[in-house]
Amino acid sequence: MSVIIVIPARFASTRYPGKPLVELRGADGSKRSLIRRSWDAAGQVAGVDRVIVATDDSRIADHAAGFGAEVAMTSTTCRNGTERCAEVLAGLPETPEIVVNLQGDAPLTPAWFIEDLVAGLRAAPGAEVATPVLNCSGAMRADLLADRAAGRVGGTTAVFGQDGRALYFSKEVIPFVPHDIAPDAASPVFHHVGVYAYRPQALTAYAGWPEGRLEKLEGLEQLRFLEHGRPVLCVQVEARGREFWELNNPSDVERIESMMQRMGMG
């Protein structure tokens, strides 16, 4: 049973044009592009048969091919990474068991996040889509709130039921908490990690649906599944001492580089 990782990457990001080619300095002083670091992260995941960078931009394609990545050119009409993954799936000669969408802006994603995600989807035969969520410490919640207070659209949060099914995803910090939380204490807020695991039928169906109202308002592609009545399984993952953040805005470069320094990531 095969698992492939697709890394969607586009040059024309609204918040950060050219983001996949931005260079990040590691703890050893080396500088590698965001897309290269995301590809490196994918290469650490056990049980994966294939990693494909999916883009509609020749600059990203040439750069990715230059460091040895397999590249799939996708159309300029793809509105998000899930649609880009669906287009890659449609062009494969054989249908994999699971397609993982590793966003090209998440170079700090630990391998076990994806491994646990795939295991979670396999353990829930009735689920067609799964995504990881990470319990926020008081400090991480404070960082998310600080981004919103400063007018920056940063990380995404998730709320889900007792069965793990997502109730909603938002770029606001939800649920509301009416009291302060100590920096090193767990909070009731869960950071949505921008990775998805799909069964092929879910991807194929998604590509045929119009963009949802909530999806458009929040700018969150996974809401299209919820708006069409398809459950999304939230799989809780553990940080194991690792720091995690996604590169959404130019100001995130310094933050991620600082995290890499602290974690000794080259």
Rank of each mutant, 00 (worst) to 15 (best):
R59Q: 13
E94D: 14
D56H: 15
S187D: 05
E238K: 10
C136W: 02
Y168N: 07
H63L: 06
R84V: 15
A65M: 09
A197N: 14
G208I: 12
V232L: 09
R36N: 15
P183W: 07
L21K: 10
C85F: 00
T82L: 03
V129S: 03
A41T: 13
G151V: 09
F190K: 08
L34T: 13
L102C: 03
G219T: 07
I52T: 12
L203M: 01
A166H: 04
A41V: 13
E257S: 09
P250W: 08
A239Q: 09
P250C: 07
T156E: 05
D56F: 09
E238P: 06
D116G: 01
G264R: 01
S30T: 15
D105K: 00
C136L: 06
Y196T: 05
E94G: 06
A124K: 03
Y168D: 11
A149D: 07
F113W: 03
A197K: 09
V193L: 08
A158Y: 01
V6M: 13
A69G: 05
G29H: 10
A65R: 15
F67I: 06
K19Y: 01
F160R: 02
L117D: 00
G104P: 02
G26S: 03
F113A: 01
F176Q: 12
S75G: 10
L134W: 08
I98F: 05
E215V: 03
G161A: 09
L121V: 14
G219V: 08
R79F: 07
I35K: 12
E87N: 09
D57M: 09
Q236D: 01
M259W: 07
